[in-house]
Design a binder for these strands. Structure first.
Lengths: 198, 198, 198, 198
DNA sequence: TATGAATGAGTGTTCATTCAT
DNA sequence: AATGAATGAACACTCATTCAT
């Protein structure tokens, strides 16, 4: 079908735009991303970019979406051990590692107030996002299977995520890369869970 | 004295500039703050602003400094009870309340990578700031006086601050204002301290 | 071809920009040249100028380059007689005439410390420029064919060029236009060459 | 007399202003000289400067005048030998050395089109300046006392000065400091004088 | 579909000069 | 005599977006 050909061509260009944008962000950060630079990079005109994306913001959002999916995949594909607490720790470690390897994106993503972005990154408000659900699920299983007792898994998940998020951002702001900080933080968090039992 | 008159007039204008800046920030956020807008607001010429502040950055930093001092004062003036844990909780509650009442400033301040700002807001790196020291001091007293046992007060302080910071930012990003979230978060954090004892 | 049409339109605008710049320079000198003035003159927006030239410096350099080429052409196309000394004199006269007809440019060009400009206008330092080589070549031929004897043609060329350059600048500064001065200067210079023979 | 006291105080401040200006020029060049910087340096207000000098230009001119006098003194105080040609050479060497030690001033002075400045630095036009007269005088004596024959001492002086001037400026523009260039240039010039004899 | 010229509104900053006090 | 606040006119440069072709 002709339509498919067209569609796939369109997809090709959109991908090229996104790739160029990624490059620019990787090299110079989000603040330096501009439509002109993207156009230059893929040898297209400025105007053409607007044929594929409504505006700059759309590109940024798409960029974030892609990164977010990468992150989610990493969390999902974490191999489970037969020790739930370790599994949770591992997830947080993997999450933190990814965040620290993608500082610009992480900051842009997690600090964005755009509704579309928030629909992915929300922690405290609205329906739980996939990332939240994953953790809630773990906490519920923890409740059943072990000597932990978590009164409100959703609230606890909010607590855990926002706490780890805080560490990530602070590490980025202060240009600190020490994974020991991460491990210590997560260990202390895990203690919290124990403590909630009666 | 003439000098005093002049000085106080100068202070007046500096305050007017700062107030205008505050207004703009309140209405449109830090990103929209510009020298021109400040000048327009107080019916001054652009050049005049530079008679009072070296450059835009100076204004921004002053804005932040003032807010930071306000915050520190609130923390300091918190009346102690005879219950250390409650005192710590109260400090965190006061801190959070202030943060949520000054969202733009809090974000700008805590997310700034400017060395001058970081010298006030640092948590993880370098010499402990006054805010950090205050908490460390509490944790050390907690260690002695009660049935808590905190192996490394400085590390624990880092953990606590970055965790609360994370909640604050997340609440701001998601436009959530529920103080229950804050209380719950802090309660869970306090559990951590207990748990570290053996 | 469409492309040619576009290209020629682009060239047209670039030329218009350059022409406007030339006008401004002619009327008020290089110091008063500004992007705004250029834009106003051709009824374009400031931003548009930047579509054609990367920055102000690029425009200035282009202006200079063009003039420099004109000058070089004049030197090259000077018809040789069968008298070498006269040929050299003629070149210097032609050079001086051009300089005096393009005072602003000559000054801007010859007094610029910009590396790009210096690569054209250098006399004393680095690899000899085309203008220098031309003169050196003449001096070498003079050495062979006549009763002149020039020990070091390159050094002599430096001497001659910088001397004529000095006269040009002085004439411009003092608003003097008398070609007799030029002729006298060049005549005296030519005596130097004779004198170097033993 | 009261008046004298006042006058001498006024002179004191004027000198202080000039000294500050000199400092700034020495450190950052003429382009960076500003009224504000001068005022700051002598702990005066901006407005006060205008009580002593009509405007910035006046200060610049005064600065140049002072330097010019220094230069003239150096030329005057050059000890004569019993060899006129050597004396002239020595003067040019001294002049060049001074110029190269005061590049900023030399350029500013010699490239200024201000009538007041030109009254000191003129070479080609109008009544001969002291510097010109000095050289003319030498050339006339050379004419009498030796085997040189200079048809028109004034024209020859113009030729010599403008030629040396050209070398100076070129050396400054190209950041060349080699005194051999200067000596060679002057030697070649001296040959000119010989050659003018018949 | 693709172009890219053009815009318009903006940014921070500088500086000589004036003038009321 | 001295102040210094205030001005006004500049300056180069950026960038997302639009739209006629």
């Amino acid at each position: 079908m002709k339509k498919n050909v067209k569609d796939s061509k369109k997809l090709l260009v959109k991908t090229a735009i996104l790739d160029a944008a990624k490059d620019i962000v990787r090299l110079d950060g989000f603040k330096s991303l501009s439509i002109r630079k993207i156009a230059d990079q893929i040898d297209y005109s400025v105007g053409s970019i607007y044929q594929y994306y409504k505006n700059k913001d759309d590109i940024v959002k798409e960029l974030i979406k892609v990164k977010y999916k990468e992150m989610l995949d990493i969390l999902k594909n974490q191999k489970p051990t037969n020790h739930l607490v370790n599994d949770i720790k591992n997830k947080f470690i993997a999450y933190s590692t990814f965040a620290l390897n993608n500082k610009d994106y992480y900051k842009e993503m997690m600090l964005s107030k755009d509704p579309n972005v928030l629909s992915m990154t929300r922690i405290l408000d609205g329906d739980p996002t996939p990332g939240m659900l994953m953790l809630v699920n773990y906490l519920e299983r923890l409740n059943k299977d072990s000597d932990f007792s978590i009164n409100n898994p959703l609230d606890t998940a909010k607590f855990l995520w926002s706490s780890v998020f805080g560490l990530m951002i602070k590490m980025m702001i202060e240009d600190v890369d020490d994974m020991n900080l991460v491990e210590n933080h997560i260990d202390l968090l895990m203690n919290t869970l124990k403590g909630t039992k009666q």
